[in-house]
Simulated assay, not measured.
Amino acid sequence: MTRLPKLVLLLPLASLAGCAGQLRDYVGPRASIVRPQLIRYGFSLPEITCVGDRLGQTLRPRQLRFLVRATSNVERPYYDPDRFSPRDFLWAAGGLRDPDVQTAIRRAYEECRVQAAPRIAEAPPVPAPPATGGPLPATPRPPVWLNLGAAPSGQSIAVDGASLEQEESARVAWFRMIDPPPAGTSLHAYRLRIDCRTRIIRPLAHRLYDSTGAVVEERDYSEPEQLPSPVEGGTVTEIAFLSLCT
């Protein structure tokens, strides 16, 4: 019997590995492709669920990936210089020049009761693609804290949507805990990297706030301090994972 070379046998597997991202888009829920950007643009939790589901049902994975790229490339809000909003999301999507995407977003806004009325005084310009010399430097913006939900212990976790960074298989953002009364919102926040494939969380930095919400201390963790830990079921880390990765 003729034996095929090992290289020939491995080629199909290599091809499948190269298409892992595309296969994941078709097998998994499509809403998860765009959900992190909805958090970044200041949608409420019900709006994130509703709009994400509607776009996942209406648009193809390729369109959703282009939408994520277009909205993540925008560094500064158009309507409010301090924070992104659903209106900015619709405006940023205009850079795709895809009428199907625009129609899908407007329809999702209508069905999900998202308030995103455009300005009447002036029409926003179509966002330009980033310069070839590299992305614009990030401009610090006020945090937009979104409570992702509570664990059985009663503790909640909130994410700063303005800080959210979306990687191919990970999410990076600032998080803080909200303990049951009388403790309330913690003055400590942590910048975490959540690996959506391995379910591993790695702390990257720490902040301390005062009672007014101003940052009084900030420190990046050194590599030895970035100790990885698994996402544990029934905890706030699982809530963060499910909200940003699924």
Results as ranks from 00 to 15, higher is better:
Leu9Tyr: 05
Leu9Thr: 10
Leu13Pro: 04
Gly18Gln: 09
Gln22His: 09
Gln22Leu: 14
Leu23Ser: 03
Ser32Trp: 07
Ile33Thr: 10
Pro46Asp: 01
Glu47Phe: 02
Cys50Phe: 05
Gly56Glu: 12
Leu64Gly: 04
Phe66Ala: 12
Phe66Leu: 14
Leu67Tyr: 01
Leu67Lys: 02
Val68Glu: 11
Val68Phe: 06
Arg69Ile: 05
Arg69Trp: 11
Val74Ala: 01
Glu75Asp: 08
Ser85Phe: 10
Phe89Trp: 11
Phe89Ser: 03
Phe89Asp: 06
Phe89Ala: 04
Leu90His: 05
Trp91Pro: 02
Gly95Thr: 09
Arg106Tyr: 11
Arg107Trp: 11
Arg113Glu: 15
Val114Leu: 14
Ala117Leu: 15
Ile120Trp: 14
Pro124Gln: 08
Pro125Tyr: 10
Val126Trp: 08
Thr132Glu: 15
Gly134Phe: 11
Pro137Asp: 06
Thr139Asp: 12
Asn147Thr: 06
Gln155Ser: 06
Ser156Glu: 15
Ala162Glu: 10
Leu164Gln: 04
Gln166Cys: 04
Ala170Gln: 03
Arg176Leu: 14
Pro180Thr: 09
His188Pro: 00
Cys196Met: 03
Arg199His: 08
Ile200Pro: 00
Leu208Gly: 02
Tyr209Lys: 00
Ala214Phe: 08
Val215Thr: 15
Glu218Arg: 05
Asp220Ala: 10
Gln226Trp: 03
Leu227Val: 13
Leu227Glu: 08
Val231Met: 10
Cys245Asp: 14
